[in-house]
């Protein structure tokens, strides 16, 4: 076991521990902080694997941006709920599924890669990455930019305060689902529909 390996084991254990705490912590902010630690640990793993550039990106994008974003998210959506309620009722299911998944994946991985010889870790140079991204991977790169634009606009659409196109805050509405409608209500609705024709109805007549 080389020093390299020792470093990896330490960083790896740290990361794994932080991950466990992330998904089990009973405190919202703790969970978010442990998440940041996990991301940092993963950056460390990248470093031990000689992926310097990726480690950098990991720090900048994940620890720097994503984790912070999440914390803002958590704080903005702070609902009056107690600590004990952070886990839902599906914990048992989650245990079984996650445990099963880990066992299966590990078994398969060891079966496939367990007997590979130890190799020296070498990473590509950053300029290799630069060339590759604009030579071999330019199409996904361009598409990704479109995707990010869409995500940006989509996020704005969903998240911004409602101004709509009519400029006014809309009340929360519910589609009437077939399941929870009773006949009386149906009649009422129909009466409403036949009684008054709203603005949208008028518009429809014009086009018809």
């Amino acid at each position: 076991m080389t020093g390299h390996d020792v470093v990896f084991v330490v960083v790896g254990l740290l990361t794994a521990g932080a991950a466990v705490l992330t998904v089990t912590s009973k405190n919202l902010m703790h969970a978010a902080l442990f998440f940041a630690v996990t991301l940092g640990g993963i950056a460390g793993v990248f470093l031990t694997l000689a992926a310097d550039f990726l480690a950098l990106v990991q720090i900048v994008v994940y620890v720097g941006a994503v984790a912070v974003l999440f914390m803002f998210g958590l704080m903005l959506t702070r609902a009056p709920i107690g600590r004990e309620a952070l886990d839902g009722k599906n914990r048992g299911l989650a245990m079984v599924v996650a445990g099963g998944l880990f066992v299966v994946l590990t078994t398969l991985l060891i079966g496939a890669f367990g007997d590979l010889p130890t190799v020296e870790v070498t990473g590509p140079r950053i300029d290799d990455l630069g060339i590759a991204i604009f030579a071999d991977w330019v199409l996904p790169f361009e598409v990704l930019s479109m995707l990010l634009l869409a995500a940006l606009i989509g996020a704005i659409v969903l998240a911004r305060r409602e101004s709509g196109e009519s400029g006014e805050e809309l009340t929360v509405t519910r589609i009437q689902m077939a399941e929870d409608r009773d006949p009386d209500a149906l009649e009422g609705e129909q009466a409403a529909l036949t009684g008054g024709s709203g603005g949208t109805g008028d518009a429809e007549e014009e086009h018809a």
């Binding site: 869409a150 995500a151 989509g154 969903l158 409602e162 809309l170 509405t173 519910r174």
Partner: peptide
């Protein structure tokens, strides 16, 4: 995003 576009609708 599009699925959620009926923003003021719980469903």
């Amino acid at each position: 995003v599009m699925v959620g576009m009926r923003k003021r609708d719980l469903y």
